[in-house]
Design a protein around this nucleic acid. Structure first.
Lengths: 147, 147
DNA sequence: ACTAAACAGGATCATATCGGTCCTATTTGC
DNA sequence: GCAAATAGGACCGATATGATCCTGTTTAGT
C-alpha cells in the first residue's frame, strides 16, 4: 500500500488547518475540536511538529500554536519527516551499511535514487496547495507536468 | 519513515535476480539460496508475484519461475503493488469515501495528486535499471532530469 | 504406476510498530 | 494564586507485518 501513518495524515490535517489562517494562533484544544480528532493525539502531534520547528508554540494561559513559516514555505515532505523520520523506502536507502547481502548492495544505490524521486514529489507539494481546493485540475496538472 | 515493507524489498530482490538472467527459470529454492533469504518467505513472495502475473510459474518437478515480461517492461511500482496493494499514501487517496471529516475532503484530492506523483516516480524505475550497477551517475541523473 | 520435486493456497503465530491515552512538570495570563 | 496551556515521557492495546507450516495438486523421471 505504501501509505503514510495515520498520525502523519492527522498532522497534515492540523498543519493545513493552521495554514488556512496563517496569522491566527490556535490551541491544541481548538484544533482537535475543529478537526474532530481526539485531543491527546493532536497534542502529541503538535509537540512533534514543534520540535521539528514547523510550528512555534506559546506556553501558558492563552497560548497555542502557529505556523513557523508561511504556508507556501512548508512542504508535505517536511510534515512527513517530522512525524515519521526521514523518507527512505528501504533501510538500505538510509545510508547505513546494514547490507549483509552483497547482492542487494548493487540495488542500494537504486533505492536511494527512488527514495530521492519520491522525496522530490513530496517536497513539491506545499501547505498552500493543500489549503487551495483543487477545483478543476490546477494542482494535479502542474504536478504532472513537473514530473 | 515512509518505507515499503521488508517483504516488498525482498520481492524486488527476487525480481532483480530473475532479471539478471531473463532466459533462465529458477526454483524458489534456488532463489532463496541465491539471495540468502529463508525459503518459506521467498516461496510466499513468488506466489503473490505469480498471481500478479509478474512471473510465470511452471509446476511439477523441474519447474520454477521466470519473468513474465522483459526486465525493461516491469517497473518497481508493479512489484510494490503486487505485494502491498495499490500505492495510495492515505486511505482517502484510494477513492472510497471513508471521509467522515468534511474538512479533510478538501485535502483528499491533494493526496490523490501526491500519490500519483509517487506512483509516477516508482513507475519510471524498471527492473533493468535495478540490474544495472549504478556506476557513475547514469540512473540517478536520468531520473532527476525526468523529475 | 510410483515417487519425488516443486508450485498453489490457506491458516497460523509471534513480534514490532502504531495509535491512542495518561501523568507529571513548567510556563504564563488574569 | 489559580487556571489555562504546552513540554516531555511513560504506558498499553490493537493491528499488521514477517515468518512458518500444512495440505493439496501438478509433473518429470524411473
Amino acid at each position: 500500500m505504501l501509505r503514510i501513518s495515520k498520525l502523519t495524515d492527522y498532522a497534515t490535517g492540523v498543519m493545513t488547518r493552521l495554514a488556512r489562517e496563517p496569522e491566527r494562533s490556535m490551541s491544541a484544544q481548538q484544533l482537535a475540536q475543529d478537526l474532530g480528532l481526539p485531543l491527546p493525539t493532536v497534542a502529541q502531534l503538535l509537540k512533534r511538529l514543534t520540535r521539528a520547528e514547523l510550528v512555534h508554540s506559546v506556553r501558558g494561559a492563552g497560548g497555542g500554536y502557529g505556523l513557523a513559516r508561511l504556508p507556501q514555505a512548508i512542504s508535505v515532505a517536511e510534515v512527513i519527516v517530522a512525524i515519521e523520520g526521514p523518507v527512505a523506502l528501504t533501510e538500505c536507502a538510509l545510508g547505513e551499511g546494514n547490507c549483509t547481502l552483497e547482492t542487494s548492495c548493487a540495488t542500494r544505490a537504486n533505492w536511494q535514487v527512488i527514495s530521492q524521486a519520491v522525496r522530490v514529489a513530496l517536497e513539491s507539494v506545499r501547505l498552500s496547495d493543500m489549503v487551495a481546493p483543487p477545483h478543476g485540475v490546477p494542482v494535479s496538472m502542474s504536478m504532472a507536468r513537473r514530473l
